[in-house]
């Protein structure tokens, strides 16, 4: 028998960590979505599709801007010492993913704004004539737009990875402490973003393309999840116990039903059938993917806090 008792009973620490509520999973989810959207937008810009009237690269950056702001607001809500938030930007801490994230977000904003500048909506131009000037200047330089596309893809990838690394760098929580988490969150962000763009796309080509891409992302996501679990199960006992939290433990039902079932497998089947023209495209599949992505963040954040070294 091994009995361990402690007199420590700190609020939000014991019996297991509860420091992060809904704000952080929402922040990570929205960050992932924005990352995916930036990559998709970047790809279309790289392909010079901004000239197409119905190209999603014309409106998706707006969505990104809103989601990113919501995400950052959620993060802000989570901070306990809000008056000191500015301290994030008086320093750069190279070993802290949180610091990296703060600075990445600072760069992501102008990138999105520049992207918007490529194809500014009418009302914006009317209100601020100067926008037109810069927009025209940009559109005269194709290579710049290509590069903005590349920058979107790179920054999107960084943002997506960061949302995973933020957790996986916290070595004290074995469920997070897997070096594949960045890939999972990146691909999940991509699948969510692809699903979203696929759902709202006015352009038939893009809709088809993103449905196919999404199927690829979802398949890849399944593979990454499998790898992550295998990785945990073949690691130390604490990692095995952490994996069991989502495999058979208290988070298993949510994980299997919502993340894997509703979030990946069912929409994957529907979309496979859709791209093969067995069924019509339906918004249900993308909604499932997006909801699944959100719940994935909740499961990982919550189960990760429960997982511990002993």
């Amino acid at each position: 028998m091994h009995e361990i008792t402690t007199t420590r009973n700190n609020h939000l620490i014991d019996p297991s960590l509860e420091i992060w509520g809904w704000e952080i999973p929402v922040y990570l989810f929205l960050g992932g979505m924005v990352a995916g959207m930036m990559i998709i937008t970047g790809y279309f810009l790289f392909k010079q599709r901004q000239t197409e009237e119905t190209c999603s690269c014309r409106y998706v950056p707006w969505v990104s801007l809103v989601l990113l702001s919501l995400g950052m607001f959620a993060l802000f809500l989570d901070l306990e010492h809000k008056l000191f938030t500015w301290r994030l930007y008086t320093t750069f801490q190279v070993t802290s993913p949180m610091s990296w994230g703060a600075w990445i977000l600072i760069i992501v904003y102008p990138a999105i704004l520049v992207t918007i500048l490529i194809t500014p909506p009418k009302w914006l131009v009317e209100k601020f004539p100067v926008v037109k000037k810069y927009s025209e200047w940009l559109n005269e330089r194709k290579i710049w737009i290509k590069n903005i596309g590349v920058a979107n893809m790179i920054l999107g990838a960084m943002l997506g990875m960061y949302t995973g690394i933020l957790l996986s760098s916290l070595g004290a929580r074995p469920l997070w402490n897997t070096s594949i988490l960045w890939l999972l969150f990146l691909v999940s962000g991509l699948s969510g973003a692809a699903a979203f763009v696929h759902m709202v796309a006015k352009n038939v080509y893009e809709r088809e393309l993103l449905a196919k891409a999404d199927n690829g992302f979802l398949t890849f996501e399944l593979f990454v999840i499998a790898l992550m679990i295998i990785g945990l199960l073949t690691s130390t006992q604490v990692h095995q116990e952490a994996a069991m939290l989502i495999l058979t433990g208290p988070y298993a039902a949510t994980f299997w039903v919502f993340v894997v079932g509703i979030g990946i497998i069912i929409p994957l089947i529907i979309q496979l059938m859709a791209v093969n023209h067995k069924v019509n495209h339906t918004p249900w599949a993308p909604i499932m993917v997006i909801v699944g992505g959100l719940i994935l963040r909740f499961v990982i954040v919550e189960a990760g806090q429960v997982s511990s070294w002993f």
């Binding site: 420091i19 989570d78 306990e80 010492h81 000191f84 301290r87 994030l88 949180m98 916290l170 806090q305």
Partner: peptide, 11 residues
Amino acid sequence: ECIGCKACIAS
């Protein structure tokens, strides 16, 4: 200097 992000607690 602390913003209360709780990364240290989780780590």
